[in-house]
Design a binder for these strands. Structure first.
Lengths: 198, 198
DNA sequence: GTCTATAGTCCGATAGAC
DNA sequence: GTCTATCGGACTATAGAC
């Protein structure tokens, strides 16, 4: 039908993951990825602003999922639980394909440049969640910290999940991590009403 | 006396900050920085692995400060407070020069590539703190989460501090942020002794 | 210190979809 | 005709190799 094979973007993503696994991120040029995907290097850079971005193309969708889950969470839920609702919604999407997540995580962990990009995406997720919480009327500082805490629970829970050979549900790991986060702050010492910790 | 002016590294750092402020990070080449610092481009790359790194040369020292503070914290302190001790020790160092921190923060915020690097340094700080906590016998998950929480308190408190024209002590802002973080987790619901939150 | 590969940008040209 | 996706070539800066 057309001059081009469809789904150039998907082919580039798959080619990149394969090549990064085979010979590593730095040993793979943008041209290599393009070649294997059957496009030119120039086309690669029109789809992805830089070489790293090819592994992070789904991140806008993740942000939308978080924002929507926070928007539609029950009104009476405490802010931190609202934020956790957001990241658990993301977990539900990733749940299905542990193999892909694990493979991708291994590639990212192996390269500092990719870790940097991942951290930027997580930071952007924190910002998205903060905004969604504030839209619910949560005060700015609480919103920011609840978002940070939820993303930490996601990040740490996800890291444990992908490291496992025969894992439970990702949502379970995240809930466990959130429980451990809550347990960090001993209620007995300083959470008595009105007392200001220094 | 010698063929070279002393403190080439310091001159490059200052030249970089000036140029990044004047014309922005991307509009400044490594050669520009080297030239203003009176060295060759080659010398620049011998001191800094990449262009961004010139703004992050103090990060190893920060890591050592955190690790040492955690190592020497009172034995009976809860893990999260030990971790907070670490980041407060860093605050004491930055305390003196609000102007420099604010200027640097503005440069970093203005450029995604620099934000990425900053996030990587913060992640590495989390790892350092986690290691130091584990060396005290804290279990791995608690150590990781306490480190994350402390660095979040630092990060958010620092961001508020640099944004202020006539700020209080950075340590105060961080303590406030930590208190707000603690307040996120309502004690009433699930922190009763022996009860396991799900 | 020189040389080189790669990343990433800018310009324009082209070919199909609508 | 308009919109969008591809391709080609030239170009600079980064960063590493020699």
């Amino acid at each position: 039908m057309s001059r081009w094979q469809p789904d150039a973007r998907g082919r580039m993503v798959r080619a990149a993951m394969d090549l990064f696994t085979e010979r590593g991120f730095e040993q793979t040029t943008a041209g290599d990825i393009a070649e294997r995907a059957g496009v030119t290097e120039r086309t690669f850079f029109r789809h992805f602003t830089d070489k790293r971005e090819v592994l992070f193309s789904g991140s806008e969708a993740v942000g939308r999922t978080v924002a929507e889950a926070i928007r539609s969470a029950p009104a009476d839920l405490p802010p931190v639980d609202v934020a956790l609702t957001g990241v658990v919604a993301v977990a539900r999407v990733l749940e299905d394909d542990h193999g892909h997540s694990a493979r991708r995580a291994r590639i990212v962990e192996a390269n500092p440049a990719l870790r940097e990009r991942e951290l930027l995406k997580l930071a952007s997720l924190v910002e998205t969640a903060t905004g969604a919480l504030r839209a619910r009327g949560v005060d700015p500082l609480t919103a920011d910290l609840a978002a940070h805490s939820a993303v930490t629970a996601f990040q740490v829970g996800f890291a444990r999940w992908v490291a496992e050979a025969d894992p439970p549900a990702l949502g379970t790991r995240i809930a466990e991590t959130a429980a451990a986060l809550r347990a960090l702050w001993p209620a007995a010492e300083s959470a008595a009403p009105g007392r200001q910790p220094r």
